[in-house]
């Protein structure tokens, strides 16, 4: 049997590769970055919502399952540059430091993932200009390493705000969809801050809180046990105040029906999830349709969310839309099973 190509080494791809190997199928696992674990590893995610489990406890077992499987041929810093269909399966050209050239594969799992929205595109929030405006993907690393001090002056902030839906639900940047994670992750970050530094006041500016399903517990806990404060309204702009010492968030408290200009020591932007560059490239490479949002679209999103509709190409994880790690892992398993069935013929 020719190997199954798994494109992408994040949670979905690792899960698919490990599952295929456990079924006895040879796997060719390809990742363009120089590490396994995708975005969670890249940004050093701290605790994972909603159960507050350290990201390492989720990623490390996945990575070691993959590394411990002799059936998985792994390549980091490697991309697929060309694809040709065969009567059964594909011929793919790999480019990387360890391996280059054409390989035959029996089927393909695309687990090419997402990119965080580039918060600089919301210029009115001053990200990239004001050092204490921080993207929440970077804040993950800051919490993880317990360095909550302000980049501008190294002082511990007294008051932090989170702004939800930065680059999500926003036609101005062309991203009208919801990222699904921003609420839970921001609230989780506020809880982590309160756990480590109860003296820091934490505020979340929101339009809706979408801690869906059982994740609601995290939202309730953040209020009941950690005193995280919620202000309904979207910050309209962030400026510097007090000679650059603090940030000024201009918004409307929509419950009060009044404009507000509130100083903060640090403002964290919950940047949305966009189709990853790898996902866009894969769509072109394999000639797959994308939805209006730019994510890959399963043929039957209800009945079979892991099948692309193109024979032998299967989809998993955030390549098809914003997704939590458990969902990505589950889809990796589903895609693995379908790819295995296809490979066996």
């Amino acid at each position: 049997m020719n190997p199954v190509l798994v494109l992408g080494g994040g949670p979905a791809g690792l899960s698919a590769a490990a599952e295929l190997a456990s079924l006895g199928a040879p796997v060719l696992l390809v990742e363009k970055e120089e590490y396994w674990g995708g975005n969670p590893r890249r940004w050093h995610y701290s605790l994972l919502a909603p159960d507050l489990l350290p990201a390492e406890e989720v990623l490390n077992p996945l990575v070691s399952r993959v590394e411990g499987a002799p059936l998985i041929e792994r390549h980091l810093r490697t991309t697929v540059s060309r694809v040709e269909p065969l009567s059964s399966g594909f011929r793919v050209e790999l480019k990387g430091p360890e391996t280059s050239g054409w390989r035959e594969v029996s089927s393909v799992v695309l687990a090419t993932g997402f990119d965080h929205f580039d918060s600089r595109r919301k210029y009115e929030y001053g990200y990239g200009r004001y050092p204490d405006v921080i993207d929440f993907k970077e804040f993950e690393g800051m919490i993880h390493d317990d360095r909550l001090t302000r980049p501008s002056d190294g002082a511990l902030p007294k008051r932090i705000a989170w702004l939800l839906c930065v680059g999500s639900r926003d036609v101005q940047v062309g991203n009208p969809w919801c990222c699904r994670m921003g609420c839970a992750v921001s609230i989780k970050q506020a809880v982590e801050v309160r756990q480590k530094h109860p003296e820091i006041d934490t505020y979340v500016y929101y339009m809706d809180i979408r801690t869906y399903g059982l994740w609601e517990d995290l939202y309730w806990k953040s209020m009941n046990e950690y005193g995280v404060k919620f202000i309904r309204g979207r910050i309209g702009q962030i400026t510097q105040a007090e000679g650059g010492k603090r940030l000024l968030a201009t918004g409307e408290d929509t419950i009060l029906s009044r404009p507000t200009e509130v100083p903060f020591d640090m403002i964290v932007l919950a940047s949305g999830m966009e189709p990853g560059t790898g996902t866009k490239e894969a769509a072109q490479l394999f000639g797959l349709p994308v939805g209006p949002e730019g994510f890959l679209t399963p043929k039957l999103s209800d009945l079979n969310p892991v099948e692309s509709g193109h024979p032998g190409i299967f989809l998993a994880g955030a390549a098809t839309g914003p997704k939590a790690i458990p969902d990505a892992v589950t889809e990796g398993m589903g895609a693995a099973l379908r790819a295995y069935k296809h490979a066996r013929g």
């Binding site: 008051r159 006041d201 505020y203 005193g227 404060k229 408290d253 009060l256 009044r258 404009p259 507000t260 200009e261 509130v262 100083p263």
Partner: peptide, 16 residues
């Protein structure tokens, strides 16, 4: 001015 310019948690801290 109707602009509200600061947040103060001392009331809620007392009530709690």
């Amino acid at each position: 001015s109707r602009v509200h310019t600061d947040l103060d948690l001392s009331i809620v801290d007392w009530v709690r």
